[in-house]
Each structure stands twice: as structure tokens, then as C-alpha cells.
């Protein structure tokens, strides 16, 4: 205290000045507040990508539940596989894409001829861009296993809650596995809000979407259902890719989202 009052000291050599200047970093909170980023998250813009001012069409996602990394209240990985399979089957289009809520084009009822195979080793048209995967995967068993779970009737007899038929195609199921995504080609409508229900079924993965000048990064933990409500505002084609190291072929884990 005596030092602070000492006239022999210049201002910047006073301890009180140093303390006050150091506390100045806390003023950054004011900057965040000015940017609209200081409030409680979760209900209206939990990740800050909701900055366009438009409210989403559907209810916001639920807040966090349970411990971190714990799967509480969500489906098991097997159940999620089946839910994803149902989702893909229901909305699969003639060109191989999965377009939830798209009615004019009839949904294929016959089993997928590629079911049960490594999707990358047997690419249909949309996966042609990922043809480089073929032959790379020494762990095809993983894919096989994952895809067997996706195959029609692979788990007949299990009681899994069916997808709501009245959702109007607002829900998107996305499964991440070593090393791919299911569905691997999504077609979504611009301006429509989708509830993405995502899960990594064998190890932690990322499900990030490249948006040109930036990306929407999502981290998925094994067996944890992660939900995001996503509205694409412009048309375009986006790379979906894994951003959490998941093994040798991590950098080949991609899918495609076309916004139409």
C-alpha cells in the first residue's frame, strides 16, 4: 500500500498498476458479451454457428445429460446401427443418395444389393468419388461387421423403436465407424432444419462438415448419441469428414452432403 502511494515511483512501476493491467484480460468477457457469446448456451445457440438470426424450425436439442462420455438414455450401438439402417433404407434414392423427407421419388423396397459388403469396396455411384478406399482397408472386417448390421433384416427379431414416420424427414441418422459414414451420401434441403442424430459405434470419431471458408466440427464419442439441429442455408456440396484420430485410415473417412 505504501508503495502504491510512493511519489517516487512512476505509474507503470507500481504493483497496483501491474495488477490492474493484468486484470484487463478479463475485459475480453465484455467483448464476448458484445459478440453475443457470453450467455448460457444450449437452448438457443450452443455452438455459436447459430449466428444468422433465424430461429430453427424445430425445438432445440436437449442439454447435456450424465457424465462425459457416458451413454445415458440413448440407444445402444447395435440399436443405433439398426436405426441408421432403417433411415437409409427408407429414404434411399435411385441414385444411391439418402434424401430424408423427399417424397416424389419412390423409396426402394428391395434389399440393397450391396448390403453386407464394404461400401467402399463396392462403390455405387455416389461413392465413386471415394473409390480410392477400395483396396486400402486391411481391416475390412470392421466395415463388413458394420455393414452387416446395416443389412436388411440383419437383426430381425430385435425390438428396436422404429423411426417416427411422421417426422417428415426432419431427422438424419449418421453413423460413424472405422472407416466411413452411413449414409455416405446425404441430400438435404436448403433452409430446412434437420435433427442430426449421430453416433460413433466402434471408436471415437468426428463428423465435421466443410463449409467453404469454415467448418462445423463435431466430436463423437463411442456409443454416445450426439444430436445437433442443423440448417443449411445455401445450396452446395459439402465434404463430411472425421476429425478425431480413429486409426490407420482416419484420413480416408469421408462422406458427402449435397444441399439442394
Amino acid at each position: 500500500m505504501t508503495q502504491a502511494l510512493d511519489p517516487g515511483r512512476s505509474l507503470p512501476t507500481r504493483r497496483g498498476f501491474v495488477a490492474a493491467a493484468s486484470l484487463g484480460i478479463l475485459g475480453l468477457y465484455g467483448v464476448w458479451a458484445a459478440l453475443g457469446a457470453s450467455g448460457k448456451s444450449g437452448k438457443d445457440e450452443s455452438d455459436g454457428h447459430a449466428g444468422h438470426g433465424g430461429e430453427p424450425e424445430t425445438a432445440s436439442s436437449s442439454g447435456g445429460h450424465g457424465g462425459h462420455g457416458a451413454s445415458v438414455g440413448g440407444p445402444s450401438t447395435d440399436d443405433f446401427r439398426r436405426l441408421t439402417e432403417d433411415f437409409s433404407k427408407r429414404w434411399k434414392q435411385q441414385d444411391g443418395s439418402v434424401r430424408p423427407g423427399y417424397v416424389p421419388e419412390p423409396v426402394r423396397s428391395e434389399p440393397d444389393p450391396h448390403a453386407g459388403h464394404d461400401m467402399h469396396a463396392q462403390p455405387v455411384q455416389p461413392q465413386a468419388s471415394h473409390a480410392g478406399h477400395a483396396g486400402h482397408d486391411p481391416h475390412a472386417g470392421h466395415d463388413m461387421q458394420a455393414m452387416q448390421a446395416l443389412a436388411p433384416n440383419a437383426h430381425a427379431g430385435h425390438e428396436v423403436a422404429p423411426l417416427g414416420n411422421a417426422d417428415g424427414g426432419n431427422e438424419v441418422y449418421l453413423m460413424a465407424y472405422q472407416w466411413g459414414f452411413e449414409p455416405s451420401w446425404l441430400k438435404l434441403e436448403a433452409g430446412k432444419t434437420y435433427r442430426f442424430r449421430m453416433m460413433a459405434v466402434d471408436a471415437s470419431h468426428g463428423a465435421s462438415i466443410q463449409m467453404g471458408s469454415g467448418s462445423l466440427i463435431t466430436r463423437l464419442r463411442q456409443g454416445v448419441l450426439t444430436e445437433r439441429e442443423i440448417t443449411f442455408t445455401d445450396k452446395g456440396s459439402h465434404l463430411l469428414y472425421c476429425t478425431v484420430f480413429c486409426g490407420a485410415f482416419h484420413d480416408r473417412m469421408t462422406a458427402r452432403i449435397d444441399v439442394v
Binding site: W32, E45, H49, S61, H65, S71, L225, D234
Partner: peptide, 25 residues
């Protein structure tokens, strides 16, 4: 720091996407 933070927010808000949530169950 203020300028960089502002720039990052501006970039984020320029993206053609609105996303909410990220919660796990």
C-alpha cells in the same frame, strides 16, 4: 485478441449453416 476473436466470430457467422446443440446422451 479482441480483433482475432471478432474475426473468428465473423467467420463462423458467415458460414451457410445454422447449428444448435452437440449434446450427448
Amino acid at each position: 485478441i479482441t480483433a482475432a476473436t471478432w474475426g473468428a466470430f465473423a467467420l463462423m457467422r458467415s458460414l451457410p449453416v445454422i447449428a444448435i446443440g452437440g449434446a450427448g446422451h
